[in-house]
Amino acid sequence: MKRRRKTRVRFEESNQSATTTAEFSFSLTKIAVSQICRSVGYKAADSSAVNTLTLITTKFLQSLAGLASSFSNRANRTEINLFDIVNALQDISLSTSDWFPGGSTVHDTESNCLIKSGVLRNLSDFVTYAPEIPFAKPLPKQEIDGSSGRDMPRIPLTRSPEMNSVPAWLPPFPDSSLYSERCTEVRSDQLWENSDSVICRETLPENSKSEKSRDRSGGRLPLSRVKVRFKIERDCGDTILERWRDKNDGESGRDVEVKKKIIEEYIDNACIVAGEWRI
C-alpha cells in the first residue's frame, strides 16, 4: 500500500483569545518566530521548542533594550541613539559567544564611524541579502490594554510638533483652548513694561473701575450712561489737619499754613476730577 505523504505544515496559530497584554505580545512574537523558522527551512516544530525560542527572543529584545538604555542613561540622555544600540549589540555579541563574527572587535572609536563595527556590518549584509519576510497579518491598530493606562484618558497618538519635547509617557496636556489665548496675549505685547501686569499696579482707582466696566461690557462703553455725582466734605480734611496740628505743636505756623494749602488744593482737584463721571 502506497503511503501518502502529508506536506501539511504544522505552524499553526492557536485560536485561543489572548487575555492579557503579555499573552497577546507573546503570541505575536510566536508567529514571527515561526515565520523565521520556516524561512530557514523547517517544515514543522514542536510547540515546546517554539515556545522556548519565542521566550528567548523576548529576553533578547529586553536585554538589548536594557543595555542600550543604560548606555544612554550613563551619557545623561533619555533618548537612545545609534551609538547606544551598537554598543549594546557589541556587548550582547560578546556575551553570546558565537553570535555575529567580528562582535568582539570594538568599532573604531577614533573616527567615530559605527559602520566599522563588525556587528553593524553583518546586520547591513543581512538586510541586503536576506529575503524580506513581512509579518503574516497586519496588527490591529487598537491596543489591547491589559495592566497599564486603564484609568487614564486615551491619549491622541498624534502630537503637535510643539509637543515633541515632551516625553510620550507623560499624561496629555489639557485642551489647548484653555491656555492658548493667554499665551497669544502675552506674545502680542511688545514690551514687558507695557504689559497689564505692570501697569495695573500703578493705576488710579478710577482706572481700575473703568477697567471693570470694560470687562463687563467686553471693552466697549455704552452710548447712554448715567451721571454720578460725588461730594467730598471739607470737614473731614479739617479734622485731619487739626489732629495733625495737635501732634506737631512745636512746628512753625508757616509750615502748617503751607501744608493746609496743599491739602485744600488736593481736595479741590479731587472735586473736579470726581465731580462728574460717567460710568
Binding site: 505580545s25 523558522c37 527572543t57 533578547f60 529586553q62 545609534l82 544600540i85 549589540l89 515633541n164 509617557w169
Partner: peptide, 28 residues
C-alpha cells in the same frame, strides 16, 4: 512594546527596525 518595557525610548523608526533586524538575525 518590548523595548518600552525595558525603558527604551526612541522616536526614530530606523533604530527600532535595527533592533528588530538584529533580533531577526539572532533567531534565524
Amino acid at each position: 512594546h518590548y523595548l518600552a518595557k525595558s525603558g527604551f525610548q526612541c522616536p526614530d523608526v530606523r533604530l527600532i527596525r535595527l533592533v528588530a533586524v538584529a533580533t531577526q538575525k539572532f533567531v534565524a
